[in-house]
Amino acid sequence: MDRHFLQVRANYCVPACIVMVEAWRGTLSAPPDERQHEIFDQLAVNGLCALEDAARLLPHEGVGEPDIDPAHQAVFLGQRITAGRRAIVTCRPGLLGQILAPRKLSSPHGTLTGNTPHHAIYVFGAEQGHFDVYDPWHFTAGQPLRLSRAQLARAWTGMMLIATK
């Protein structure tokens, strides 16, 4: 089952997404907030968790080294999600913030802005050119978020981790 978890701290997006994958897989072994701390302690380098390193903790089909221009990759992501996988993808925070701004979501961490470290989100649904995602930056209210393929592509870095059951 897909569940949303708020990231405990502003630099915990990757741990929060890993917890969402673990909840989907039924392997979440600790309370979600506690588990985010555990994951952060395992992965963080100088206060940042790289998506590439999430692969150490999850069964996966691969960490997508991005195509330089991910139109094909967005189509591929949709196919893998439709085939029953889940994904963590990273976005450019400022661009994602702009796309989400009209939805008036709330977050204890402020607004997503600028070309700061990439922000990870959890992708669990794909249908007819749309993706259903959970964004750990924002509270659960108003989620899941339905993003068109173009909206996701606009903010996406192209990095993705395709998780398997």
Partner: peptide, 20 residues
């Protein structure tokens, strides 16, 4: 950005991001 990040990642810069 995407091209430069790919280049840095290829040389071991995990978790990199372009700012400018």
């Amino acid at each position: 950005f995407a091209r430069a990040e790919a280049q840095v990642r290829a040389s071991g810069g995990r978790g990199c991001w372009a700012s400018e």
